[in-house]
């Protein structure tokens, strides 16, 4: 990328990658999942990475969150290079600086919404009381304070994903990484989750969302298109009015 992306003066990007490579297999079976990806996300920015399935988006997100290690290249988070960190350091980084939202929600089935949200706080060594208070606040923020005692199995997909978003926020991460957050949701639930993410963006939360769902563009400041393991296009979406929308109505004669 050739330009700084509107990061605040004096502060570098929260997240930056340099010539990121990911290869699986070898010989004839070599798969280049990522091929020299360069990505930056400034503080408070919402970046959407779009591409068809198999384009390497999920691999990219796993590398950004330290869930996998790149074959080559660098990942920098808040000024620290993370691709060479030990598993232990990565674990600390994940619980302090990163919040994950997955397509499959990945909530613990036997824990209530409240307990699911508390979990990362407990893993980070917060006191049970702090964890409980924080989880209650976040559930209220995602509009599920009345569902705090419910098990995931008793919740709709949209509600589960909102719980997952609350869980991602419980340790006040520097960045939230979302992998197809609307992938398993219907239109109404997608809208709920997008509204929630939009609220986070408005509150200054840095977001990186990989998706093949174009609706996510609604909340993104920047849209990056991926194809075959490379970033091929970047679009800055200035937030405008719906002026041109009228053309979409088809009402013109």
């Amino acid at each position: 990328m050739t330009q700084a992306n509107g990061s605040l003066p004096g502060i570098g990007p929260v997240l930056r990658t340099q010539d990121l490579q990911m290869r699986y297999g070898r010989g004839a079976g070599l798969v280049r999942a990522l091929n020299g990806v360069e990505l930056e996300a400034a503080a408070g920015e919402a970046v959407a990475v779009m591409g068809p399935s198999g384009s390497g988006k999920s691999t990219l997100l796993n590398l950004l969150g330290g869930l996998e290690r790149p074959s080559a290249g660098e990942v920098w988070l808040a000024g620290n290079r993370i691709d060479g960190m030990s598993e232990k350091e990565l674990a600390r980084l994940r619980r302090q600086s990163i919040g994950f939202v997955f397509q499959a929600f990945h909530l613990m089935d036997e824990l209530t919404a409240q307990e699911n949200v508390e979990l990362p706080a407990l893993l980070a060594g917060r006191s049970p009381r702090t964890a409980r208070r924080r989880a209650a606040q976040l559930l209220e923020r995602v509009g599920l304070d009345d569902r705090a005692g419910h098990l995931p199995s008793a919740m709709s997909g949209g509600e589960r994903q909102r719980v997952a978003v609350a869980r991602a926020l419980v340790n006040e991460p520097l960045i939230v990484l979302a992998d197809e957050p609307t992938g398993n949701l219907d239109s109404a639930a997608t809208a709920d989750v997008l509204r929630l993410l939009d609220g986070l963006r408005a509150a200054g939360q840095t977001l990186v969302i990989v998706t093949h769902d174009a609706r996510v563009t609604a909340i993104a400041d920047r849209l990056i298109t991926m194809r075959d393991g490379s970033l091929v296009e970047e679009t800055r979406l200035t937030r405008g009015t719906v002026g041109r929308l009228a053309e979409l109505t088809g009402l013109e004669g």
Partner: peptide, 16 residues
Amino acid sequence: RRSSALARALGATPDQ
């Protein structure tokens, strides 16, 4: 397997 991986994604170390 899944819950362990999830715990790690949420910040538990492999040793934990």
